[in-house]
């Protein structure tokens, strides 16, 4: 790992330099009163003194909706148009470690039985500059899923602000190395490693919540049926948790048609929805809401782990923060881990 320090006035200079070099820069930006990842045309639009965006960064590689093909039969026969696979070179600046870490987790599913090129090509075209956290709340539990507020997973470059205000630069991947080389002067050689360690410790101390996720998994492994699930009957069956989650990745394939032409679209979907599992016959194997909520937990902490060896959660706490009825995922895991102990 190469260590450097960000020169000049830090982040704004970095963003403006990337834009000058013709790259598409995505950063947290304020749009109509909502802070979200979006393209910025100058550093002035980026908000990097922030906690977390409400929506995660997954949209950058897994948009809410996208056409997987276009079709048109206005001329009599059906013409099929494949989607464009040209994705502009993109740099995400300021992703928090729990956002960045979702990308390698998602790689598993999108390259599993087939290569979802819309995802993988976007992913290839995207370089992530992560930013160590400076705040956390009671819903954060990244340290319980093997991550941390200064973790490099998913970042090609990680920036950590030191006590003196300077940014310590860790170049993590080859992609990060390539970008660092292009940025040349902006990254000064060398950095104060002990100050970096100190900043990391400080950041890690912000996360006070700790859940024994492997113990919870042990319990989940053989408690598909348990009254614990029924205690979350208050779940409303919305998609707020799944749609703000950086790792939830379910989608539906639907045709959106206007007249004789249209698009076949890949649209976000959610296991917490009633109609997610309803059969054509009308039968629904997940007939009540707690069973749908159970699926969300089991997929994240049991099935995904069994299949790919990683947990489908970065501990960002978004689902708990935005749940209309205050269902706290860490508490659900704590309950599971607690039951395993007894």
């Amino acid at each position: 790992m190469e260590h450097r320090t960000l020169a000049g006035d830090g982040l704004p200079a970095l963003i403006d330099e990337l834009i000058k070099k013709g790259m598409r820069v995505i950063a947290p930006t304020q749009r109509n009163g909502d802070l979200a990842f979006g393209q910025v045309s100058s550093s002035a639009e980026a908000v990097l003194d922030y906690f977390l965006c409400k929506r995660s960064a997954k949209e950058i590689v897994f948009p809410r909706t996208e056409a997987i093909l276009g079709f048109d039969r206005s001329g009599g026969e059906v013409k099929v148009e494949p989607p464009s696979m040209q994705f502009p070179e993109t740099v995400v600046v300021g992703a928090r470690p729990c956002d960045a870490a979702s990308l390698p987790i998602l790689d598993h599913i999108f390259t599993w039985d087939c290569d979802d090129e819309l995802f993988t090509r976007r992913r290839e075209a995207t370089t992530v500059i992560g930013l160590t956290c400076t705040t956390a709340d009671n819903f954060c539990f990244c340290t319980s899923v093997g991550l941390s507020p200064d973790n490099t997973a998913g970042s090609d470059i990680l920036l950590t602000q030191l006590e003196d205000g300077q940014f310590f630069v860790e170049v993590v991947t080859d992609k990060g190395e390539k970008l660092a080389a292009e940025l040349g002067e902006l990254f000064r050689e060398g950095g104060d490693e002990s100050a970096r360690q100190k900043a990391g410790e400080k950041a890690r101390a912000l996360v006070t919540r700790s859940v024994d996720v492997s113990k919870a998994k042990g319990w989940l492994d053989d408690h598909f049926d348990d009254e614990m699930w029924e205690s979350w009957m208050t779940c409303l069956g919305c998609g707020a948790c799944t749609f703000v989650c950086p790792t939830c990745h379910c989608f539906d394939i639907v045709d959106e048609v206007q007249g004789l032409s249209g698009h076949r679209c890949k649209n976000w979907d959610a296991c917490t929805f009633w109609h997610f599992t309803v059969h054509a016959s009308g039968h629904n194997p997940r007939d009540v809401q707690y069973k749908r909520y159970r699926q969300r937990i089991l997929h994240k902490f049991r099935y995904y782990k069994d299949r790919f060896g990683v947990t489908l959660c970065t501990g960002c706490g978004r689902c708990s923060r935005h749940c209309p009825v205050g269902i706290d995922i860490a508490e659900v895991l704590e309950t599971a881990a607690g039951s395993a102990a007894s």
């Binding site: 749009r31 979200a36 069956g237 919305c238 799944t242 749609f243």
Partner: peptide
């Protein structure tokens, strides 16, 4: 534009 169609509005 930024509606994510989570239907939380409806469910609540």
């Amino acid at each position: 534009e930024r509606c994510i169609r989570c239907y939380a509005c409806r469910q609540a």
